[in-house]
Amino acid sequence: MSSGSILQVEGVHQRFGGLLALQDVSLSVEEGEILGLIGPNGAGKTTLFNVISGYLRPTEGSVRFLGKEVTGLPPYRLAAMGMGRTFQIVRPFPKLTVLENVLIGSFLRTSSRREAEDRAWETLHLTGLAPFASRPAASLNLAGRKRLEIARALALNPRLLLLDEVVAGLNPAETDATVKLIRRVRDRGITIIVVEHVMRVIMGLSDRVVVLNYGRKIAEGKPQEVASDPAVIAAYLGESGGGSEGR
């Protein structure tokens, strides 16, 4: 428990009926870092995000955010405290325009329409969405919608940002642009946790990486260390790395 820690997850278990989706997961995120969260499909990454952001109450264990116990707090309370997140399956408000989508985020910090709109524009410029401000969100392509997810979360003026597969499905040029954006967001002092499938991206972007497999943390460390960890390699080669039955 270092003093610069913004988020601590301790001993989290998550059970769905008979299925144990998370087993005794602990991790700590330092202020200002980019933490990569990786693992094969079904490893429990999104479940962990849902626990951290208040969409799931963990069966066991605790989450502390900004030094406060937040286990079981609803998502909107966490958002107000400064936690922003995106969804793996992008879900912008389809009928609203791009600007309005972001506006809803910036309304969290002010009830003045003028102020909220100024902040929204600022975020749109930062994320490169300004030219599409008056388009309905549903008209954006996947890259645009993923970008909009980030923009909405940024508009909340968060201290911590959880990004769930924001480059999956994008072409290399779009991916590079998003990676650049994530770096720029971090440079503004926002701590970031990234869940990602694209190994090249996560290894290049993260200061530190946590690997999940079958709901357990199997490795943690600098990207290079983790990449050469035999347990991680085994997990990614599809062997039963976490000690559970292989599929």
Binding site: A79, F93, L156
Partner: peptide, 26 residues
């Protein structure tokens, strides 16, 4: 049609889970 409250309502209508992530108590 232009206020914070109105947009909170629309956010809930469009996607309640997403609205919660935006700090809205549905």
């Amino acid at each position: 049609s232009w206020s914070r409250f109105g947009y909170s309502l629309q956010a809930i209508r469009e996607d309640q889970d997403s609205a919660m992530a935006m700090g809205i108590n549905p």
